[in-house]
Design a protein around this nucleic acid. Structure first.
Lengths: 215, 215
DNA sequence: CCATTAGTGCGACAACAGTTGCGTTAGAAT
DNA sequence: ATTCTAACGCAACTGTTGTCGCACTAATGG
């Protein structure tokens, strides 16, 4: 998970339903400018004052936009972060290709570890807000679904190299490799352990080699 | 994680610091009665109206106690759930002893699965609130620390039976076994999979047998 | 260019969260 | 029984969150 780039272009998808009687959306100049201003403000506010300082009022003030505008278009803080997430998901992320399954999973885990331990962590804020806001929860679930789908290439490459049997359950393997990281850093909130990403990756590989994800 | 029993006895520990100048606490009749009433109200309100319906005002009304009383003793909703958690941690929980490492871990995972999928889930509510309230986060971390410590006996028994080498990292093994469950049900919020507890337990055992948690 | 109206600004409002001061009630100690 | 005071009830208060009606601005289609 990475911090989305600056919001410049037109909005990818309005938070509302796509269209029913097509009330003639107008995504042009001002609307796009407002969205860019607001999402930039969200990012800046999050970096400067952390998740607790991320209120609708503060974002509206910083963006130079009225409170009601934010409430109408994004409903709440969850909606803001959800939109920020969809913007960030647009970039074409690819998992690293190190040549070995262990190397790929370790690289993946180091990315996860970095995104969760940076201060302040956009990823952690998104996870936290997903428990308050349904739109944020949906956006996060969609984001993760896409990320895990992209990561399946790591397993496919390992199968192609003969490291794993063809019937390997890619998703289960990926979850086994990454879940301990999230468990420690998000749920247990234990102190960051620099060796954990590698150990978790190694554990998953050993389990895979023992046939834990086959058949 | 299980739902704590009814609050009847005297409070185990006041939410404040234990004592500094010992201002003569009085944990007797009314104080204990109030705590029992309030914590019962928290549990009932959580079950009936879910986490979103769990406001200080609603709890105070249901308990037949004034708002300020709740604010003064528990600060906020997080404090209420934190106290409920410490109450639940008082019972002498023990992991099941099925005779095999795989059986023990699977039984453990089924307990976790049940507590997270019941509707509404007190466990899920506690995790959610731990992102808003520092006291709740502390209480939850303490609870988990204790639970994982208790579960280490599962690993010790397996070592005693010769299933695992003596230098096995019990905590890492337990996390590997349970983390995928929390990952799916709490973070990814995917649909409950009845087979997941067994599969996750099996994966951890295979990894352990391959030496993933040794040395 | 003009007409339409989505999107925005503004102010007033309701609902809720949380605090404070003060008087009252009821454990606990003498 | 009397005293002391922790814990509670009560009311009034502040600040924040979120909504609503109305006027206005500017993007879009003709």
């Amino acid at each position: 998970m990475r911090t989305p780039r600056t919001a410049t272009g037109t909005p990818s998808a309005p938070p509302r339903e796509p269209e029913r009687a097509a009330p003639a959306r107008r995504p042009g100049g001002r609307t796009a400018r407002t969205r860019a201003l607001v999402l930039d403000a969200v990012r800046a506010q999050l970096v400067e004052h952390g998740y607790d300082g991320l209120t609708v009022d503060a974002v509206a003030d910083r963006a130079g936009v009225h409170r009601t505008t934010v409430y109408r278009r994004w409903q709440d803080v969850g909606g803001l972060l959800a939109d920020l997430l969809t913007l960030g998901a647009e970039d074409d992320w690819r998992p690293a290709d190190t040549g070995t399954l262990l190397g790929d999973l370790a690289a993946l885990n180091h990315e996860v570890h970095a995104s969760l331990t940076e201060q302040p962590s956009v990823a952690a804020a998104l996870i936290a807000v997903s428990f308050r806001s349904a739109p944020a929860a949906d956006a996060l679930r969609g984001f993760w679904e896409e990320r895990y789908a992209q990561c399946e290439t790591v397993v496919e490459r390992a199968v192609a190299r003969g490291e794993l049997p063809a019937e390997t359950d890619a998703r289960a393997l990926l979850v086994a490799a990454t879940a301990p990281l999230y468990h420690h850093l998000v749920l247990l909130r234990s102190a960051p352990d620099p060796g954990l990403p590698d150990r978790a990756a190694r554990t998953a590989v050993l389990a895979a080699e023992a046939g834990a994800f086959s058949r």
